[in-house]
């Protein structure tokens, strides 16, 4: 197990290193200069600015400096927000994104699990078809379409909640969280339904019934845990979906989060910030997948004892 974790950590760093390298050199090929916003300057002034950001040096030297700083956890300096370090920039924007992501994840998976359980326990009834249809809608309708509709009806037409921005306490977070939650909700509902139906048809559920267990005990004491454990395996895709969703949802609701920063950095060619955000997202997703794999081994007794992956 220790060897396995060690191997996985090494792979994680190789992947991050590759992403950093690839994104560094991809940035160099980008059309448009990172200091485009300084274009009123004359050549001498430009040279001073280029020197300040270190982009007057040859590319390999720039790369070496960047990687050295990265190893220390320094993501460089933003070109657009004059003189501000990318670390500070992202740090101020982390909170809204984390709050939205966490709320969406918790709300989405809990409601999704309940919906999936309902569908499985009332298999082939109205409840099953209803929640399955709802799940299909959640998986199919793109998050930005859903976010736009929420914003149009609930905020613009009915004035129930703020249209956007991050200045109205919890109210600001409701609609964007809801828009983000649709993905995890639908995915976990579908997943739990399938798992639960399979578990309910298993021999050990029959044995539990033969012991005299009632419907509630069968659903929660016996079936639930067995259906829930595999849900951990889809947490990785769920997190990736949340990050993707956050790019558009934060933009639609004008939330000052990482996703919104990423999109606006792309628009303004702010290389250092694009790279910083890319690495942050990658590190987050890679870490989620890693944690999921370890967690699965800890929670499932079948894997826990035998040590390796089942």
């Amino acid at each position: 197990m220790v060897k396995y974790i060690g191997k996985r950590i090494v792979y994680m760093f190789i992947t991050l290193f590759l992403i950093a390298t690839a994104s560094f050199f991809l940035m160099q090929t980008l059309p448009g200069s990172p200091i485009a916003s300084y274009n009123k300057l004359n050549d001498t002034q430009k040279a001073i600015v280029e020197k300040k950001y270190g982009i007057d040096k040859p590319k390999p030297v720039q790369y070496a400096i960047y990687m050295k700083n990265l190893a220390k956890g320094d993501l460089g300096t933003s070109f657009v927000f004059k003189g501000k370090s990318v670390n500070d920039l992202l740090a101020t924007r982390l909170k809204p994104s984390l709050i939205l992501g966490a709320q969406a994840m918790v709300f989405g998976t809990i409601v999704g699990i309940l919906l999936g359980m309902l569908a499985a326990l009332k298999h082939n009834t109205f409840w099953d078809y209803g929640s399955t249809f709802f799940a299909i809608l959640g998986i199919s309708i793109p998050s930005f379409v859903f976010a736009s509709l929420l914003q149009y009806w609930i905020a613009s037409e009915w004035h129930l909640l703020p249209v956007g921005l991050w200045n109205d306490g919890w109210k600001s977070s409701v609609l964007p969280s809801l828009a983000l939650a649709m993905g995890p909700l639908a995915l976990s509902a579908r997943f739990i339904r399938t798992e639960m139906i399979e578990v309910l048809n298993s021999d050990y559920i029959m044995l539990a019934k033969a012991k005299g267990a009632n419907g509630f005990e069968i659903a929660f004491k016996h079936a639930f845990r067995n259906a829930l454990i595999p849900l951990i395996t889809v947490l990785g895709p769920l997190a990736a979906g949340l990050v993707t969703g956050s790019l558009v949802v934060e933009q639609i609701f004008a939330i000052p989060g990482i996703g919104e920063q990423f999109v606006s950095s792309i628009m303004t060619n702010d290389h250092a910030t694009i790279m910083g955000t890319t690495l942050l997202f990658s590190a987050f997703l890679i870490a989620v997948i890693f944690i999921v794999d370890i967690l699965y081994g800890v929670i499932d007794p079948r894997i826990r004892v035998s040590g390796g992956k089942g």
Binding site: T15, L18, V243, F281
Partner: peptide, 12 residues
């Protein structure tokens, strides 16, 4: 290695 790289990042 490739599977570790988030799709979204590569696409963008």
């Amino acid at each position: 290695i490739l599977i570790g790289i988030p799709t979204l990042i590569v696409v963008i």
